[in-house]
Amino acid sequence: MHLYRLFMIVSLCSILPVMAESEHPQHPKKPNHPDNLIPLPEVPELPPETDSPPLPDIPVDPELETEVTIIKRGEDIIEEHRVNGELLMIKVIPRIGPPYYLKKNPIRGYHDHPGEAGIDVNPPMWQILRF
């Protein structure tokens, strides 16, 4: 007997929402949008693809190319980046830990202490974020 009552309650609970959503001729459903809407214009067709003019051949200046020298010291890797023979940056990839960079100090010739070693090198830099 209890199973019959439970079945009836479940049936009524599932039928009532369906009946509430059905449209009745006496109560037409109101539209959810305003009456003064204007339709969007048609999307124009794209012009046919034309071959773009070829890019001019610009000779590459070998003096401006970056030269990378890779040196292995034990399990560490050192990359030296040079432009026109001048060392600008060193990337050190240690066996443990993230790589770090040693860059040349852009303020060349500025010396607080003329005898201090490493004056032309910035402190080590680690890459935190990459976009």
Rank of each mutant, 00 (worst) to 15 (best):
M1S: 13
M1V: 10
H2R: 15
H2G: 13
Y4P: 07
R5T: 12
F7C: 09
V10T: 14
S11C: 14
S11P: 01
L12G: 11
L12D: 06
C13W: 11
C13E: 12
S14G: 06
I15E: 14
L16K: 03
L16D: 06
V18L: 15
V18A: 15
A20M: 10
A20R: 08
E21D: 12
S22Q: 13
H24F: 13
P25N: 04
P25I: 03
P25G: 03
Q26I: 10
P28G: 04
P28C: 06
K30D: 13
K30S: 11
N32C: 07
H33Q: 11
P34G: 03
D35Q: 09
N36I: 00
N36F: 08
L37I: 05
P39H: 07
P41C: 05
P41Y: 07
P41L: 10
L46I: 11
L46K: 15
P47G: 03
P47M: 05
P47I: 03
P48L: 08
D51N: 08
D51Y: 04
D51C: 05
P53G: 02
P54T: 04
L55P: 09
L55F: 11
L55I: 07
P56T: 02
V60F: 07
D61F: 01
P62D: 05
E63I: 06
L64C: 06
E65V: 15
E67G: 04
V68A: 04
I70H: 08
K72V: 08
K72A: 05
K72C: 02
G74F: 02
E75G: 08
E75N: 15
D76T: 12
E79Y: 13
E79M: 10
H81I: 03
G85I: 02
L87I: 02
L87N: 02
L87C: 00
L88C: 05
L88R: 12
M89H: 00
M89G: 00
K91G: 05
V92R: 06
V92I: 13
P94S: 01
R95G: 07
P98Y: 08
P99A: 02
P99R: 00
P99L: 00
Y101A: 02
Y101I: 14
L102R: 04
K104Q: 07
N105F: 01
P106S: 01
I107W: 10
I107D: 14
I107M: 15
R108K: 14
Y110K: 11
Y110M: 13
H111A: 08
H111I: 03
H113E: 13
H113N: 15
P114K: 02
P114R: 02
P114Q: 02
G118C: 01
V121N: 04
N122S: 04
P123I: 00
P123M: 00
P123C: 00
P124M: 00
P124G: 00
P124A: 01
M125H: 10
Q127T: 09
Q127G: 06
I128G: 07
I128C: 07
I128K: 14
L129P: 08
R130I: 07
F131K: 11
